[in-house]
Design a protein around this nucleic acid. Structure first.
Lengths: 130, 130
DNA sequence: CTTGAGCCTGTACTTGCTACAGACTTTATA
DNA sequence: TATAAAGTCTGTAGCAAGTACAGGCTCAAG
């Protein structure tokens, strides 16, 4: 299968496949005589793993770690779970941050009288420190 | 006041000040004979506005919009509030996304037996589509 | 046999900064 | 006053994580 087909099958942008190869997530595929990349089922599996991990918010570096564990074949369930849990904690932190931000924005908007005057408490709020 | 002092007073990275000037958020300050930037109180106010807006998650482009309204002097409370509300909606969307992600990660981790075997449901989950 | 689609490479662009290098100026210390 | 240290100047390169070309080949269909 060539690059375009792999892109279609996985829903991945065709250029992104090349990018994942460049940064070492996706192994260099064999080539035809004329230099065309030829992908096997294994590549598709790995690419799906990468795409899914990205959707779950893992960084490229984290995925590199996960892949080396998995591809090494000697990973343990505990190792993978630990990394996933660490990531879960990071996601939860981010949610907490965003909720604080949400509260601040709600407060800011609530302070607005909604009039047509150039006297806006939102602007005032923006110039204040936290 | 010179750039370093403005950085210290606002807590902004010194290079970031130059960056905000480059992208047109912070007006070009007057210079000394030898070319050193000289900032007035107005610059500090604007910089604080930018910093605060960034903390609230506004993009550079959005801040450019807010500043042009504010600096134009003819903004209305409604205009500013509308933009802030739009941003609030975006923040809420992001929270919803992250919560979905959190649920998926919790589910994934829960599927793990925590053993020392190389048989990991997390890895399986990662290769599946959504 | 020609046309268009697909693939190849390298490079530039994005966002929001941050971090240098190398030259210059200002300030503090001996 | 001389010199050292700290500050500032410019331009440029780097980060994540892709995306989007340009210009050249190659492959398949009509």
């Amino acid at each position: 299968m060539k690059r375009g087909q792999l892109a279609t099958r996985t829903g991945c942008n065709i250029e992104t496949i090349r990018y994942y190869e460049k940064v070492g997530l996706l192994p260099d595929p064999p080539r035809t005589e004329k230099g065309y990349r030829v992908y096997e089922h294994k590549h598709e599996q790995t690419l799906r793993f990468i795409i899914r991990s990205r959707e779950l918010g893992f960084t490229i570096e984290q995925i590199r770690g996960l892949l080396s564990l998995v591809d090494g074949g000697d990973y343990t369930c505990t190792e993978i779970r630990d990394q996933t849990e660490a990531h879960l904690a990071a996601v939860r932190d981010r949610i907490v941050d965003l909720k604080k931000l949400e509260a601040t924005l709600v407060e800011t908007v609530a302070a607005c009288n909604g009039g047509n005057t150039p006297n806006c408490p939102v602007v005032d709020a923006l110039t204040k420190e936290i």
